[in-house]
């Protein structure tokens, strides 16, 4: 229900623009939505949606697999942090999309290069956010762990991990938007499936209604991912446990 108002505002603005321009480059929303419904019923866009979803979820999983231990270790051990953080700061600002050709040479032109590109983009902000989350854990909790003789594995499981979990979800929320942008660009190269390919292919063929239905689908994919992250967070961290 909380998405009804924003959707109405976007659709209304879209109608105003379409009415004002009266151009095929901005078709009426109802034409786009009916085209989208038809293509979903016919099943022609599902493969594109599925490929994009697969790439982004796998990219996220890859990124977190490396970002969680990197961030946790750097946050916990100062000496390691002194080695890791400068590397993170050096590489984080680089536009990783520029490395797409390199990844395509190294990992092939299939899904892997696109997944790795998304993973690399998510990795840096996730690792830095997790590192900061570990640093900010109140020392009183760590003192408590020592007072009650917790073993290192118990400290990770009982204190570090639950304390940093909200940061992990935050970092995912921050990176979803940029991941979708990168996904769109990467799917324009050597791809036959994916929403990026679908949108640009429709554009090339001047099928603007189809192009917009791809854009709407990409937007819905983003919305779905945010909703999924929120749902997982609520499942992992009940309100009363925050």
């Amino acid at each position: 229900m909380r998405y009804v108002h924003p959707v109405l505002i976007v659709v209304l603005s879209w109608y105003v623009l379409a009415l004002a321009l009266q151009s095929p480059i901005v078709p009426y929303p109802h034409l786009v939505f009916s085209h989208l419904a038809e293509s979903l019923i016919a099943g022609t866009t599902f493969m594109h949606l599925f490929h994009s979803l697969y790439r982004i979820l796998t990219g996220m999983a890859f990124a977190l697999t490396f970002a969680i231990p990197t961030g946790m270790l750097a946050g916990r051990f100062k000496k390691l942090d002194h080695m890791v953080s400068p590397v993170l700061y050096l590489l984080y600002p680089l536009p990783k999309i520029a490395f797409l050709p390199v990844f395509m040479v190294l990992f092939g032109i299939g899904d892997l290069s696109k997944i790795i590109l998304i993973a690399v983009i998510i990795f840096f902000p996730a690792a830095i956010t997790i590192r900061d989350g570990i640093r900010e854990i109140p020392t009183q909790y760590l003192e408590l762990a020592r007072a009650f003789h917790l073993k290192p594995a118990e400290v990770i499981r009982e204190i570090l991990w639950p304390a940093v979990l909200p940061r992990i979800f935050s970092s995912l929320r921050i990176t979803v938007g940029i991941s979708l942008s990168v996904l769109f660009i990467s799917e324009n190269y050597a791809a036959r499936f994916g929403l990026g390919y679908y949108i640009m292919n429709n554009w090339v063929m001047a099928q603007y209604v189809g192009m917009y239905s791809g854009i709407v689908l990409l937007s819905l994919l983003g919305l779905g991912l945010y909703a999924l992250i929120d749902f997982c967070e609520r499942l992992a961290i009940p309100d009363a446990a925050r």
Partner: peptide, 15 residues
């Protein structure tokens, strides 16, 4: 120093 993410019983049983 109760851990907010653990239930009361789990806080008592910490470690």
């Amino acid at each position: 120093r109760l851990l907010p993410w653990r239930k009361v019983i789990d806080n008592v049983l910490l470690g």
